[in-house]
Write a protein that binds this DNA or RNA. Sequence first.
DNA 1: ATAGGTGCAAATGGTTTGCGAAAAC
DNA 2: GTTTTCGCAAACCATTTGCACCTAT
Lengths: 136, 136
Amino acid sequence: MQILRMKIRPLTQQRRLLLDTIREVGRHLDAKELYRRANEKDERISLATVYRNLRLFRDQGIIEERHLRRGCCCYEMKRSGEHQHLVCLSCGRVIEFKSPLIHKLVTEVQRKNRFLVARVDLCMEGYCHECKEERK
Amino acid sequence: MQILRMKIRPLTQQRRLLLDTIREVGRHLDAKELYRRANEKDERISLATVYRNLRLFRDQGIIEERHLRRGCCCYEMKRSGEHQHLVCLSCGRVIEFKSPLIHKLVTEVQRKNRFLVARVDLCMEGYCHECKEERK
DNA sequence: ATAGGTGCAAATGGTTTGCGAAAAC
DNA sequence: GTTTTCGCAAACCATTTGCACCTAT
């Protein structure tokens, strides 16, 4: 955490609050929910600051941006292990998954398409186990 | 094409124009560009009609919706072969690719996460061959 | 004849920005 | 003390919607 914060200067109260909140929640947040949660702790923070800093954190490589829902972006702390997402169309739940096949796929694409891959955004929509059972 | 059109009733002039334009262009269009192109052929069409019908076509399974860029959706005719996209961060070019690994990945996810996959949205960002060379 | 689609303009929702006040260095 | 950020409100852009009129069936 210390290392990450070094990148963010000046480290204002608002930035500290936002980073803490993102880390604390530990799952995917959109700007509005981050604002809501940060605002609970300190009323003075504004939505504009949330947007400005989400962009800053993203550009600094501290958080990752994902397109899990139509019309808005979600953010999460960048972690070492590459992972992707499943989104349930029924309950909205977001499930993370990993697979060595993703790395294989990247390698294959880079070779076959002579394309240098910088970022993988893979999202599968469908029905989670619980919702699948209910639909029967 | 005949079969597809059966689903769309009433088949108005606007819908015919939009379907023809999407098929004709044959690549990814966002609402604004579809409007621009359709409007060149018939000035009377409105942007609202483009949006309304993109949604209709999507719900009828005639076109596919993709999230290739931040803040807007792209659409393309649904084809039989499942394919995914590479987006060049430098020139903006969109490259399609296929791989049997994608199907393997879906099978794996369905088994390991007990998740029923309905849709795969995979987009890799990076640098295409030409832009990669230029950056050297 | 009638159900439904269309154009227009206004509304909506997520995100960005200009500006004077405030904070970090 | 200087540079940068913050809060606020207004702007922006993609998309949706209410309503009176028009069209495909």
